[in-house]
Amino acid sequence: MSFALTDEQLELRRTSGKVFGDAERKNPLPPSWDAVPSRLDRDLWSSLGELGLLGIGVAEELGGSGGGARELCVLAEQVGSALPSIPFAGSAVVAAMLAAQPEDSPARKVLGDVVAGSRVATAAWGTFPAVIEPGRGSGDLRQSASQVEGTVSAVPFGLDADLLVAFGDDNEAMLIDLSSTGVRRTAAAAVLDLTEPLATVELSGVTAVPLGPCAVDDLLRTVFAAELVGTGQRALDGAVDYAGQRHQFGRAIGSFQSLKHMLADRYVQLDAARMLVQRAAAAIDDGLPETESAARTALVAACDAATSASGDALQVHGGIGFTWEHPSHVYLKRARARRSLLGSSSRQWDAIADHVLNTH
């Protein structure tokens, strides 16, 4: 299995990198203290829609830009590196769910708006049963016929989104129009991640469109993993650059053996995680039987690599890395926030072991 990027994928990486770079120059990290919590970067979101980047992974005949999980992960790594204020993972997963619906389904009718960026879609990760954190179950939302009641906390971009996908107490997905009567949204404190604003969404007698089981678990894990690799790589690149510029005792600190070996270890760890992400994406695209184990392995490897790289990068920067003005803490907080959402390494590895034992 080859992990080399094709010419088209390299062009996708270059184009998306330029778009995110331009957006970051307009809204540099970290945001100012007064600008927290942030809100959706609508200019960037519109640009992504116009370029067809929100439709990566959706077939052209359905209004998308074509491509598969490989292309989606190339883009996700760029998102993880730049950390713009956009619900990329949520929108990508929602688009995949909508694309899987029957042609005459009401849910399919909004797919075009989602990939065009005219309607912002997000996902209530806390309701996704055992997809995010092993052992977690849903139950925050109660369904009665087509009506849904309940409260969902910590919804990413919940104040900005037009559409929400959540799982109800029957462990099946549903699509909710957040402009409906009976929806109340309030801002929630962002405990860690400065680039992903949260909201609490209260639903009272709101009509929901059923989506069924929607098996996008492996795609979700792989996209999250690709984002984390991008975040870890960005943190590591900054640390390597700083280690080459900062001098102590008449030498660049990067020449000291302890730092040099630590940064090299983080590079190897991230490179291995990236290859596992590419393997998982290829398994999804090719419909291989080992898709679930590949996606789970990629996710836990990326979580560990991003957490280690961002933590060590902050240490390399020394005192300046602990200041608000320096972006090191932004990468560390994103990695830690994802770890909090996805569960500890031990729980992830236990889930992998259970899957392997149950399939052999």
Rank of each mutant, 00 (worst) to 15 (best):
K26V: 11
G287M: 05
G112S: 13
A99Q: 02
L178I: 05
P102Q: 14
E172R: 13
P289Q: 12
V155K: 05
G287L: 02
D312L: 06
S105E: 08
D193F: 00
A187R: 13
D177Q: 11
F256G: 10
E149A: 09
R25H: 10
W33S: 11
P134E: 12
E77T: 07
D43T: 10
P31E: 11
E103C: 13
M174A: 15
V131M: 13
V316A: 06
V36D: 04
R336M: 15
A69E: 07
R42D: 14
Y267I: 12
R334C: 03
R347N: 10
L332K: 11
E202I: 07
H329W: 01
L276A: 15
A100K: 10
T291W: 04
T195C: 03
H247L: 06
A273T: 02
S310H: 01
A295T: 11
L98I: 11
M97P: 08
L54V: 03
I86A: 06
E290I: 05
L164N: 10
R338G: 15
G135R: 07
F88S: 04
S308Y: 11
Y331K: 10
L51K: 08
Q9Y: 01
A281H: 09
E50Q: 10
Q245G: 06
E60L: 02
S344P: 09
L314E: 04
G230V: 08
C214S: 15
W33T: 11
E149W: 12
R266Q: 15
A123H: 11
Q315K: 12
T6R: 08
A294R: 09
Y242K: 03
A35Q: 10
L178Q: 09
G205L: 14
E290Q: 12
K260F: 07
A353R: 07
L98P: 07
V316Y: 02
V58Q: 02
G137L: 07
Q9F: 03
S138K: 08
S65W: 06
C73L: 15
